[in-house]
Design a protein around this nucleic acid. Structure first.
Ligand SMILES: [Mn+2]
Ligand SMILES: [Mn+2]
Ligand SMILES: [Mn+2]
Ligand SMILES: [Mn+2]
Lengths: 220, 220
DNA sequence: TTAAGTTTTTAGATTTGTCTAAATTTAAAT
DNA sequence: ATTTAAATTTAGACAAATCTAAAAACTTAA
C-alpha cells in the first residue's frame, strides 16, 4: 500500500509523540504538524478508515500495528537519507533534517535497501537516533544524559535530544558533535554548570540546560 | 519559486516534446502525461498565469524563458539521480527512470549541487543523455545513429533513444550497453539488418529498427 | 464554401488536504 | 451540582488537480 506524504507525516509524528508522551492528543498533534486541530480530526478519520489508526472520537487514538509499521519505514528512510547527506554529501548535521523530510517520502523499497547497503548498514543517524532495520526493528542503544555522567569518566556523545538550530549552533561552536569523546572535570553546584575536557581542546563550560540535552555512552 | 510536482512534470514534458517535435499540441501533451486533454488545458492556463508558458487559446503554446529554466533544472536533477542510482547504488540502467521520476522533485538546490560534485560532475546520464549544468547549459554531444555508422569503424554506444523496457531488455541480452565499443562488419541490404562485432563476444545481428535507436560516437 | 471531422476548450463534478467559525463533548473549578 | 473553560469535532468553504460530457474553434475535403 502507498500513502500520501501528508498521511506519512501524520503517522510518523503520531509515532514520535506516542514514544515521548505515551498518549497523543489532537491538539499536540496539530501543534507538531503546524496545522489546525480541525484538520487533524479530519485526517484521523481517514487514517481510521484505512485501519492505520485506532480511534474513537473524543476518546483518543493510537497507531494500529499497520500504522506503526508504516511509521517505522518512514523513520528508517528519513534517518538513512540523513546519514547519506552527512557521510557522503558532506552536509552539516544541522542542515539535513529538512531535506530528509522530503526524501523520506520517496516510495521505492528497493532504493532504501540499496541505500542502506551503500551506507554499510548504519545503526544511528547523524543525530544519534537509532535507524530501524528493514523489518522495522529499532536497535537498542543505552545512553545517559551528560548531566548524569559521573566526574572524570570518558564518554562519547551519541545523541542530542534538542535538535533546534540554536542548540546545534551552540554545540558546534563549543566543538561538541556526535562521537565527540569528553570527560567532566568539575560540576558547579551553584547552577549545575559543568566544565568539560575534550581531547585537543581548551576546557569548556556548558549550562545544565545544555547538558540535559546531550546524551552519552560510556564503558562500564 | 517552488512549483508542485505536477507542474514540474508538465514543464519537463513540454520541454522534451518541444525538442523532439518542435511544436507541442494539447493532445500530444495529454498522451505523454497520461491524462486527459481537458486537464491539460486547465494546467496550461495556470502555467500561463505563472508566466511559465506563452499560451493563446487555440493558437498553441511554448515554454517561456523562465519555464524552460525550470524544466532544465528538473531534467538536471532527474539525470543526476539516475547516475547516482546506477554508479553508486548499483541499479541496472533500466530500473532507474521510475525512481528518478520521484527524486527529481526534491527541492533543495544545494542537494543537487552536492550530488553533482559527489558524482564528479558527470556530463551524461546512464542512458547517454546529456546533463544540464547548474546554469541549465546542456553539453553538446555529437552522435550518429548506428544505422548510419560506416562499416569497419569502431564506435562507442552513447545513447539509446527508445528507452522502453523491451528495447533495454533486447540490448542487455545482446551485450550492448552504454559505452560498449562495437564495429559494423556487414550490412544486409535485403532488410538493412547489421552484423556487429563487440570485443570478446560472438558477432551479433540486429534489425534496422534497433540500429536506428542506438546512437554512437566515433573518432574522426 | 459548406459540411465533416478533429482538436481544443468550457462546464460541472469529484477527491484530497486544508481552513475558520460554530457546536459539542469532556474536564475543571467554584 | 452547576458553571466555566478547554479540547475536540462538525459544518461549510476553498484551492489544486483531476475527470466526463458537451460546446466551440479550427482544419480538411468534398
Ligand atoms: Mn516529511
Ligand atoms: Mn535525525
Ligand atoms: Mn516526475
Ligand atoms: Mn535517463
Amino acid at each position: 500500500m502507498r500513502y500520501s506524504p501528508s498521511k506519512e507525516n501524520y503517522l510518523k509524528t503520531i509515532f514520535h509523540l506516542q514514544e515521548e508522551e505515551g498518549v497523543v492528543t489532537t491538539n499536540a498533534l496539530a501543534r507538531a504538524l503546524d496545522t489546525s486541530p480541525a484538520s487533524v480530526t479530519d485526517m484521523l478519520k481517514k487514517l481510521k478508515t484505512q485501519k492505520l489508526l485506532l480511534y474513537e472520537k473524543y476518546k483518543g487514538f493510537k497507531l494500529s500495528l499497520e500504522g506503526r509499521k508504516v511509521a517505522l519505514q518512514i523513520i528508517r528512510k528519513h534517518r538513512l537519507w540523513e546519514v547519506f547527506l552527512v557521510e557522503k554529501l558532506r552536509f552539516g548535521w544541522e542542515e539535513v533534517h529538512e531535506i530528509a523530510e522530503e526524501l523520506e517520502h520517496i516510495s521505492s523499497k528497493k532504493l532504501v535497501d540499496h541505500l542502506d547497503k551503500f551506507l554499510d548498514f548504519p545503526t544511528t543517524d547523524p543525530h544519534g537516533d537509532p535507524i530501524p532495520d528493514a523489518n522495522g526493528k529499532i536497535p537498542l542503544i543505552k545512553q545517559i544524559s551528560l548531566r548524569d555522567l559521573p566526574i572524570n569518566i570518558i564518554a562519547a556523545v551519541c545523541n542530542i535530544s534538542d535538535q533546534s538550530p540554536e542548540m546545534l549552533e551552540l554545540l558546534t561552536h563549543k566543538g561538541i558533535g556526535l562521537g565527540t569523546k569528553l570527560e567532566i572535570k568539575k560540576k558547579f553546584s551553584f547552577d549545575n554548570s559543568l566544565e568539560l575536557n575534550i581531547r585537543n581542546h581548551q576546557p569548556i563550560t556548558i549550562s545544565e540546560n545544555v547538558a540535559r540535552n546531550v546524551f552519552v555512552t560510556h564503558e562500564e
